[in-house]
Amino acid sequence: MCVPQTDASYAIDYELIFQHAPVGMCISVDRVIQSCNGALTEMFGYGDGELDGKSFQLLYPTLTEFLRTGDRIIPIMNARGRYSDERIMRRGDGELFWCHVSGRALDSTVPLGPGVWTFEDVSEKRPVTAELTPREREIAALLVEGKTSKVIARETDLSPRTVEMHRAKLMRKFSASTSSELVHKLVGVAR
């Protein structure tokens, strides 16, 4: 078995990799961006360095969604040390778009403390086509993850009946006759 030799003149430049990654990346502490790459600032419509020192709240459609997402992330980060979902985010110009977000705590005892987060714009595959309330956006994101009304109710501290009411409103807004059709429309798959 031959093990390749490492060229001593070759060094991995992690800062260069971070800055040129094909997805938005940032380092955060307590949901405040410490440093982010060009892909992230470009995706959200900000200039170089504009997001450094800013709260993730700036990237959410509303303060309520920012707070609810933080509450939802904590138990999952505590259990797994990482988190991933797709949610609607807000660009600097106010445009809403679907974004795949993944994160990992650098210290597993502090889930929202120091962490590494990636953001990928998935709006080409999943356009935001209907005016949704913050709660409807939250329910839609959880439906896309394949969660049932009971699970969504448990995760959002709502009753299953309230979740069903929001699902029905989403079905009307997206002209979907079944829950399956609604999910397909939410993910941008025409039926």
Score class of each variant (00 low, 15 high):
Ser175Leu: 06
Thr6Cys: 12
Asn37Gln: 09
Gly81Ser: 07
Trp98Lys: 04
Val29Ala: 13
Ile76Leu: 10
Met43Leu: 11
Gly24Met: 06
Arg167Asn: 04
Ile33Thr: 09
Thr156Gln: 14
Val110Glu: 08
Ser177Arg: 13
Pro61Ala: 11
Leu143His: 01
Ala11Pro: 00
Pro61Asn: 09
Lys147Cys: 13
Phe44Ser: 04
Glu42Gly: 02
Phe56Asp: 02
Pro114Trp: 00
Gly92Val: 01
Ser35His: 13
Thr109Met: 09
Arg72His: 12
Thr109Pro: 01
Ala39Lys: 15
Gly47Tyr: 03
Gly115Val: 00
Phe56Gln: 01
Val183Trp: 01
Leu112Thr: 03
Leu106Val: 11
Thr129Leu: 12
Asp93Ser: 07
Arg31Glu: 08
Gly115Cys: 07
Met25Ile: 09
Arg161Trp: 12
Ser28Asp: 15
Tyr60Asn: 12
Leu170Val: 00
Arg68His: 04
Glu86His: 02
Leu186Val: 05
Val29His: 10
Glu131Asp: 15
Ser175Phe: 11
His20Ile: 00
Thr129Asp: 01
Ile76Phe: 05
Phe174Cys: 03
Glu65Gly: 08
Cys26Ile: 03
Asp13Pro: 06
Gly38Met: 11
Arg126Ala: 14
Asp13Tyr: 01
His100Glu: 12
Leu182Tyr: 10
Phe66Pro: 03
Lys173Met: 06
Gly103Phe: 00
Tyr10Val: 15
Gly45Tyr: 10
Glu138Cys: 06
Met43Ala: 13
Thr156Ile: 07
Gly70Ile: 05
Ser102Glu: 15
Tyr83Lys: 04
Ile12Asp: 03
Val23Asp: 03
Arg104Gly: 12
Thr133Pro: 07
Pro61Cys: 11
Glu164Met: 13
Ser108His: 06
Arg126Trp: 02
Ala153Lys: 11
Glu120Ala: 14
Glu181Val: 15
Asp48Lys: 14
Ser177Ile: 07
Leu158Phe: 13
Ala105Ile: 06
Lys150Asp: 15
Asp85Pro: 00
Ser84Met: 10
Asp48Arg: 14
Cys2Phe: 09
Gly70Glu: 04
Leu158Thr: 12
Leu142Glu: 14
Gly115Phe: 00
Met1Leu: 14
Arg90Glu: 11
Thr178Ile: 09
His20Leu: 12
Cys26Trp: 02
Thr156Ala: 11
Ala8Asp: 10
Ala140Asn: 05
Thr109Cys: 08
Arg68Thr: 08
Asp48Leu: 11
Thr129Gln: 13
Pro61Glu: 10
Trp117Glu: 07
Arg68Ile: 05
Ala190Gln: 08
Ala8Gly: 02
Ser180Leu: 15
Arg104Ile: 12
Lys185Phe: 01
Gly53Phe: 07
Phe97Gly: 01
Arg191Glu: 15
Ala11Glu: 10
Arg87Gln: 11
Cys36Gln: 09
Glu15Trp: 02
Gly70Val: 04
Arg191Ala: 12
Lys185Val: 02
Thr178Pro: 02
Gly188Pro: 06
Ala153Leu: 10
Asp93Phe: 11
Ser175Asp: 14
Ser9Leu: 12
Ala21Trp: 06
Ile73Glu: 14
Gly49Ser: 07
Gly94Lys: 05
Leu106Arg: 03
Pro114Cys: 05
Val122His: 05
Leu59Ala: 10
Thr178Asn: 03
Met25Cys: 06
Leu16Phe: 09
